[in-house]
């Protein structure tokens, strides 16, 4: 079976989540991550509109929705909270991992995801709080946009936050943001290190690169 880019990204990110983690997933690719988790794993999802213990989507009549407004379920032991407690958890460092999409990420881990001036202004929603407050920020995005690199020396779009991304996962590579720059950790078997470097505007530190975990060529 040939995996689509977004499935590759979601599958690889699922391997970054661990038992006991409280996780917030953004809209888009991040919502695919639970598809690749072992049901036995004890991972709890928080949804910023007011759920701890968000479960799968449902067609049943319900007033429980996720942050995308889709009807959803709650797992046993879950709770409903108001927006104040929800964002106190987020900013207060109680969320272990947040997974979000981005339009650009740069060599310092700054990211842009909420506005393309003059074109698209959806607003930041909860993204600015999530990236500032979560203990680990994982960026889930395609490596390029219409062939143009999205991992840049410096972001060109207005920032969501400065220096907050910790890990970037694309269909081509896994890249860690460290104090000395971006470290290329893993490359998908369909690509070479050279391919990744060619499609990345930012400089990548290359040593001890391994094939992307969980992927077959």
């Amino acid at each position: 079976m040939i995996m689509e880019d977004k499935q590759i990204i979601a599958k690889r990110i699922a391997m970054e989540l661990h038992d006991g983690d409280l996780v917030n997933l953004g809209i888009g690719i991040p919502t695919l991550v639970p598809d690749y988790l072992d049901p036995k794993q004890k991972i709890l999802f928080q949804s910023e509109n007011g759920v701890i213990g968000l479960g799968p989507l449902t067609d049943e009549e319900t007033w429980l929705v996720n942050a995308g407004g889709n009807k959803a379920t709650i797992v046993p032991g879950g709770s409903y909270i108001d927006s104040l407690l929800s964002f106190s958890l987020i900013r207060g460092g109680h969320i272990d991992v947040t997974v979000l999409g981005a339009l650009e990420v740069d060599s310092q881990g700054s990211l842009a995801s909420w506005i393309v001036p003059g074109k698209k202004v959806p607003g930041m929603g909860g993204a600015m709080d999530l990236v500032v407050g979560a203990k680990k920020v994982i960026i889930a995005m395609t490596h390029t946009n219409k062939g143009r690199p999205k991992i840049l020396k410096h972001c060109t779009l207005p920032l969501t936050a400065a220096r907050q991304a910790n890990l970037i996962v694309t269909e081509m590579a896994v890249i860690a943001v460290e104090a000395d720059g971006l470290h290329l950790l893993e490359v998908h078997p369909d690509y070479s290190i050279e391919d990744v470097l060619n499609m990345t505007d930012a400089e990548l530190i290359v040593k001890d690169v391994i094939p992307m975990k969980g992927m077959k060529s």
Partner: peptide, 29 residues
């Protein structure tokens, strides 16, 4: 930002002169 919006409303309802948040630092916010 959503969390700041919640806190701004809380401050209004709780008699506070505002709140201090790290959210939005070094952005156009």
């Amino acid at each position: 930002p959503q969390g700041s919006l919640a806190e701004k409303i809380r401050a209004g309802g709780a008699g506070l002169g505002g709140i201090l948040t790290p959210t939005g630092i070094e952005t156009i916010v």
